[in-house]
Write a protein that binds this DNA or RNA. Structure first.
Lengths: 211, 211, 211, 211
DNA sequence: GATGAATGAGAATTCATTCAT
DNA sequence: AATGAATGAATTCTCATTCAT
C-alpha cells in the first residue's frame, strides 16, 4: 500500500519512518499526530513522507500492517502449535509477549492499542484480518480440547471462546502494565510476579473451562 | 464543570445539548467532532455552546460525567446489594445493562467506549473515579465470597479480580453487540440467546473461581 | 451622549458603572475590555449597559468625558488663577495632582493614559477639547510672563510652550509613578521626596525659560 | 524569536512581511490588526505567517525588535560619541532622526509609538532593553557635563535626566509632526523651521541645566 | 528523490449586541 | 427597566497536502 518509492528505500530508513509514525500515533492519536513531527523524528523531510505514502491515513494503515506482520513472523517461527493445548497456547503466548515486550515495547503496545479499538474504525479495518486468523485458531484449539476431554462440552464453542478471550486479553494487559513499569532490567522477583500471574490465570482458565 | 448558564437552562435543552454532543463524539471521535454540528443537532447556535462550556473538552468531560451519573442513579436505585453474591452481582448487572441498552443505547455505548479507553487519556480522566468505586466494590464481593467459602482461597484477591473483570467485560460487550443488532423489538428467541449467554458465563465464572 | 436611561439612574449606580468601565479599560485596553466584565463589576446586568449606552465605544467616550469633567470641577474650584505665574501654575497643578492621586488614583491614571494617547485615536477624540483649553491657558500664562519680564522674550511662544509641556508632562508622570508606589499612607519622607522633585523642576523651568 | 523558516527566507520577503505587519499595527493597533491583512499586503498566504511566527504576538515582538535593531545599526554607525556634550548629543540625535524620518517614516513613527507606550505592556516589553541602554548613556553624559562644569551641580542626576528626557521627547515629537506634514520634498523654509526648533530647544536645555 | 516553503480549507473560540421575558 | 440567554460575524490558528527547486 505504500508507493513504490518507499519500497526502494533502504531498510533502515523504512524502519525509521514507520517507528516514528508509530511513536507519534501512540503519543497523540491519529488525528493529532503531525506528519511534520513524524518526518522530523525519522530524519527525513516532510515532503518525503508524501513520496512514500499517499496520505497520512495510508501511512497509518501501513504502520499497523507492518507491526502485525512483524509479529506474525515471530509467532510463526515460534509456534509449531499443531495439537497444542489451549492452556499451553495461552501460556506460551503470554511468555512470548512478555519477552517481546522487553524487546519491542513500542510495537507491542501499538498492536494492543489497535486491537482494543483505540484508533476507532481506522485501526480495526487494518487489524480485522489478523484478528480473524487468531480467532479461527483459538476455536480450533477449543474444539480439539473438547475432543480430548480437557474442555467441558456442555457449553457452546463460541461461548468458551468469549470466555477465553476475555480472560486472556485482560491478563495480557495486566502483564503489559507490569512489564512496562519494570521496563528497564526486570529483577528476578519481578519476573516471578509475572510468572505467578500467568500460572494463576491458567489455573482459572483450566478450572473454568475444564470438565 | 459547565458554566452557570448551562445549569440555568431547562432540562430539555440541557439534555438535547448533551445527547447531541454524545452522538457526535461517538460518531466521529473527540477530535473530529464539530462543535458547530453538535450545536446544530441540539437546535442551538454554535456560540451558545460556548456560553455553556468553556471549550469542547469541557463539554466532552461533562457529557461523560453526566452519562455516568445517569447510570449511578439507576444502579443505586436497583441494587440493594448488601452481601450479594459475586455471581448474582454479575448477573444482575448484566440484566440491568441489557434493559438499559434497549432504553438508552446511546448512553450505554458511550460509557462503554469511554471505559474501554476509546477516547484516550481524555476519557479515562473523567472515568477514573467511577472505575475505582466499581473495583472497590468488586473486591469486597470477592473477599466476602472467600469468607463464605464460595470462592477458592488459593489465589490472590487481585488476581481473582482481574479474572472477574476480564470475563465480565468481554461478556458485557458480547451482550451489547447482540442487543445492538436486535435493537428494536428483540424476539423471545433472541432474548433467550442473551439469557443463555449470561448463564453460561456465570457458570464459567463460578467454576473458575469456585472451590 | 449616554441614553436618557442612564441619566435617570441614581448617582451611585452611575458611578459604579463608569468606574467599572474605567477599571476594565485601564486593565485591558479598549479592545480587550469586556462589556460583560464591566457589568459584572458594577453589579448590573450585561443587557443594562446597552440600556445606558448605544455601544461599548459610547461607554468609553463617556467614561473619558466624565473623568475630565470631574477634574475640571475640582480645578475650577481650586484655581482662581488670574494673573498666576507659570511656575506657580505648574507647582500648584502638581500639588493638586498629587493630592488627587491619593484620592483618585484610578481617575488620574486614566486621564493620563488617555492624554498620552494610549487609547489611540479613540481617546484623543474625547480628550482633544480639554487639551485645547489647557493649552490656551498655558499660552496666556506664557504671554503674561513675557510682559512681566519673568520669561525670556527671545523665543517664540509656541516653542516655550513645547518646552513647558515637555517638562511638566514628564515630571507629572514621575510624580505619579512615585505616588503610585507609595500608594497607601505616604510617609513624611516620601512626601518630601515629591516636594523636592517639584521644586527642582520649577528651578529648571525657571532657569530655562527665565531671562 | 521567529521560527527558523523565517530566517531562511530571502531578505526581500522578510522585509515585506515585517513592513506589512508594522503598517497594519500602526494603522489599527495590535488587537485590530488582522493577520490575514498583513499576509495579503506582504503578498504571502495567511498560513505562511504562521510558518514564520508562532502567533500574532510573536510577529509583533519581532517587528519591534527588528525596527530597533535597524536603528541601532544606523546610530552605531553615526555616533562616535566619546565625550560628547549632552547638547550636541541631543542635536545630533535630532538631526539624525529628521533625516531618518524622511527615509523611513514608518519605522520612526513605529518606534516612537512603541516607546511612548501606545502598544501597552506588549510594546514596552520589547522596548525596555533599548530604553535602559539609552538612559544609561544619557546619565553618563550628564555626569560628564557636571565634571566639565557645563551642567549645574545643585541638582540630582536623576532629576536632570528627567528634565532632559521630558524636553527631548516632546521636542522630537514636534519635529516628527512637522516633518510628517512636509513629508515629500521639504522646502528650504521648512528645513529652517526645523533647525530653528532644534536650536531653541538646545538653548532652553542649556540655560535650564547650565550653571 | 529529497526538500521545505507555500497554501488555504477548516475548526475553535470570542464577544458585542440583540431581544424575549 | 432589568435581565441574561441567544446569536453569528469575525478572527486566530492548525496542518495535511502540494509543488517548485
Amino acid at each position: 500500500m505504500p508507493k513504490i518509492t518507499f519500497n526502494r528505500l533502504d531498510e533502515d530508513k523504512k524502519e525509521r519512518v514507520l517507528r516514528s509514525a508509530i511513536e507519534e500515533f501512540q503519543a497523540h492519536g491519529f488525528e493529532r499526530a503531525k506528519v511534520e513531527e513524524i518526518a522530523h523524528k525519522a530524519g527525513v523531510a516532510k515532503g518525503s513522507i508524501y513520496q512514500y505514502f499517499n496520505d497520512k491515513k495510508e501511512l497509518f494503515f501501513y504502520s499497523v500492517t507492518w507491526t502485525l506482520e512483524y509479529f506474525m513472523k515471530i509467532i510463526d517461527r515460534q509456534t509449531p502449535l499443531k495439537d497444542m493445548d489451549v492452556y499451553d497456547y495461552f501460556l506460551s503466548g503470554s511468555r512470548e509477549r512478555f519477552e517481546l515486550l522487553k524487546r519491542e515495547p513500542l510495537l507491542v503496545e501499538y498492536s494492543m492499542a489497535v486491537a482494543l479499538g483505540k484508533y476507532g474504525s481506522l485501526g480495526l479495518e487494518a487489524y480485522s484480518e489478523l484478528y480473524r486468523i487468531g480467532e479461527e485458531y483459538e476455536l480450533k484449539l477449543i474444539a480439539n480440547g473438547k475432543k480430548k476431554g480437557t474442555i467441558r462440552s456442555d457449553l457452546d464453542d463460541k461461548i468458551l471462546l468469549t470466555f477465553f478471550q476475555g480472560v486472556t486479553e485482560k491478563f495480557n494487559m495486566e502483564i503489559m502494565d507490569k512489564a512496562k513499569s519494570y521496563r528497564f532490567e526486570p529483577t528476578e522477583e519481578q519476573f516471578l510476579e509475572i510468572e505467578n500471574l500467568m500460572k494463576s490465570m491458567v489455573s482459572l482458565l483450566k478450572q473454568g473451562m475444564g470438565r
